[in-house]
Design a protein around this nucleic acid. Sequence first.
DNA 1: CCCTGATTCGC
DNA 2: GCGAATCAGG
Length: 188
Amino acid sequence: MSAIESEGAMVEAIPSWTDERVELLRRLWEEGLSASQIASQLGGVTRNAVIGKVHRLGLAGRVKPNGAGQVTGRKKIETESEAAIALGSEQTISEPPAVISHRPAPSFPLTQPAAKPEQNGLAVSERVTIMDLRESMCRWPLGDPTSPDFRFCGGRSITGLPYCTQHAQIAYQPAAERKRDRRVAGIR
DNA sequence: CCCTGATTCGC
DNA sequence: GCGAATCAGG
């Protein structure tokens, strides 16, 4: 087809707010994800950009806050009574945690022997399950996702990124250098 | 200090 | 229209 397949520097230039991105943005925002979380998943944009877009789209003010501080200039529940009322009249809030199976930006080695509880010199990361995974935690997968032993790194992730400094280096290697597989890429 | 969204304003 | 800087808050 097109001869615009110049893949010299595969830095994945992020287009802009394409229909798809806007749709995803809408979905995630309505799902209750924070702007920074959405920004992280979209990639190439900051939380400011996300917030700005959200407002331009007229999506400001969501229904359900989530986790840490949210909703500042908005009405919020103050007392337990109000909370009960809100919960009762609003809706049966039983929606699953908004855990989006984000597509791994770079194809990283997910195929690896299950992580073993061995502390290899380096401090064994505070591995966590998906339940304990917080936005500020490294999402680097450890082990077989189908195994109950599956865990995430859980280390302090770089703000705005899904991984800690350690794993971000592995995850975001330039395509050129990634070529085959770095020994160092082996999960630690 | 970590985080949240809201707003402004130059581009 | 976009988003960094800033603001205001938890």
